[in-house]
C-alpha cells in the first residue's frame, strides 16, 4: 500500500517553514518581530511532533511554548529599555557562524555514518493513557523531581524580580 503522501508532504512543508522562521528570528532587526517569529517556529515544531505522531507532546509544546513562554519573552522585552530592542549582534558573530556550521557538518556526518536500527513498526498511535502509564511505571521519581524543580523556579523568579520596597515590606 503506497504510503501517505499527505503526511510526507506535510513533514517537508512544516520542516521547511520551521527552518525559515528560525532563520528569520536571527535575521529580523526588531526584537518583537524576532519573538513573534520564534512563536511561529514553536508551532511549526509542534506540527512536526504531530507528524511524528506524538500528539500529547505537540499539545504540551503549543500550550507551554507558544502560550506561556512567548508571553514571558514579550513581557521581558517590554520591561527592558527600548534602546536595546534592536536585534543586533555582538562582535562574536562570525566565529559563532563558523562554529555552528562546523557542528552541523559533524552531526550530519554522524547521522549518515551510523546505521540506525529502524524498527519496522506499522501502526504507531500513542494514546494519552499509554503515555501516562509510561510516565508512572519507570519514571515516577523524575516526575516528582520535575514538580519540585518547577516550584523552585517559580519562587526564584519571584524573588529575583522583587522591588526593593516589596522586599522591605516583607522584611519589616
Amino acid at each position: 500500500m503506497i504510503t501517505d503522501t499527505g503526511i510526507v508532504i506535510a513533514f517537508y512543508v512544516i520542516g521547511a517553514s520551521t527552518v525559515v522562521s528560525a532563520l528569520m528570528v536571527a535575521a529580523v532587526r526588531n526584537l518583537i518581530h524576532a519573538v513573534l517569529f520564534l512563536v511561529i517556529t514553536f508551532t511549526g515544531v509542534a506540527g512536526i511532533y504531530i507528524v511524528l505522531s506524538a500528539d500529547f507532546v505537540a499539545m504540551a509544546q503549543v500550550l507551554i511554548y507558544a502560550g506561556a513562554i512567548s508571553v514571558l519573552l514579550v513581557f521581558a522585552v517590554m520591561l527592558t529599555p527600548t534602546g536595546d530592542r534592536r536585534n543586533a549582534e555582538t562582535s562574536f558573530q562570525a566565529p559563532a557562524l563558523v562554529l555552528a556550521g562546523l557542528l552541523l557538518a559533524v552531526v550530519v556526518f554522524v547521522i549518515y555514518d551510523t546505521d540506525w536500527r529502524i524498527a519496522s513498526r506499522g501502526q504507531f498511535t500513542t494514546t494519552a493513557s499509554s503515555l501516562g502509564r509510561a510516565f508512572f511505571s519507570p519514571y515516577v521519581v523524575p516526575f516528582e523531581v520535575a514538580s519540585v524543580l518547577l516550584v523552585a523556579a517559580m519562587v526564584g523568579a519571584i524573588i529575583l524580580t522583587q522591588d526593593e520596597d516589596e522586599e522591605a515590606g516583607h522584611a519589616a
Binding site: 519573538v35 521581558a76 536585534n87 562574536f92 558573530q93 552541523l104
Partner: peptide, 28 residues
C-alpha cells in the same frame, strides 16, 4: 531527514545564543 531537521534547528539556536547582543536574544 528528521534528524537533519533537528540538527539544523540546533545549529540556528547555537548561532543565536552565541551572537545576539540582547540577553533575551540569547534566551531565545
Amino acid at each position: 531527514h528528521v534528524l537533519i531537521l533537528g540538527a539544523i534547528l540546533f545549529a540556528i539556536g547555537l548561532y543565536l545564543a552565541l551572537s545576539k547582543r540582547n540577553a533575551i536574544g540569547v534566551l531565545m
